[in-house]
């Protein structure tokens, strides 16, 4: 399964970055959202996979069952998810405002002052 998830991480990054290279600011933002999915899955997979147990201590017990998955990666990913959500929402509104002003969301048509 590690192999499969590793390839999936690669697929998420590849597709996300490929979208970021397209002629649409919308696709860029969506692609970056996909990249952050990839990063989350990467953290998750890199730390090791455990199936069927949760890192929650059962009632009456002081600690989760032995062999429960590492609780830290989910906590880190939780933070990362919220952050990437916040960034995605902001960026998509940015793209919308840009598209409203420029009449297109093609970065090749709008981003030219920098040349």
């Amino acid at each position: 399964m590690t192999w499969a998830l590793a390839l999936l991480v690669g697929a998420l990054y590849s597709a996300g970055l490929f979208l970021a290279l397209r002629r649409s600011a919308t696709k860029i933002v969506i692609g970056l959202a996909l990249v952050s999915h990839g990063a989350n899955l990467l953290i998750f997979t890199a730390a090791g996979l455990v199936r069927g147990l949760v890192p929650i201590a059962p009632l009456g017990s002081d600690s989760p069952p032995p062999g429960a998955p590492d609780p830290l990666p989910p906590a880190l990913i939780l933070t990362a998810i919220v952050i990437s959500f916040a960034v995605t929402v902001f960026s998509i509104v940015l793209v919308k405002r840009l598209a409203q002003q420029a009449g297109t969301d093609d970065p090749r048509l709008i981003g030219s002052h920098d040349a």
């Binding site: 990054y13 996300g16 970055l17 970021a20 600011a25 860029i28 970056l32 990249v35 952050s36 990839g38 990063a39 990467l42 953290i43 998750f44 997979t45 890199a46 730390a47 090791g48 830290l72 990666p73 880190l76 990362a80 960034v87 960026s91 940015l94 793209v95 405002r97 840009l98 002003q101 970065p107 709008i110 981003g111 030219s112 002052h113 920098d114």
Partner: peptide, 29 residues
């Protein structure tokens, strides 16, 4: 112009964030 500059700024820095996060994940792993 701000929005154009902002788009470039945002895109490239978010790619950096994606790499940073991946690196941290690998380090933890």
């Amino acid at each position: 112009r701000q929005l154009e500059g902002g788009l470039a700024y945002l895109t490239l820095n978010l790619i950096a964030s994606g790499l940073f996060l991946a690196g941290v994940g690998v380090l933890y792993g």
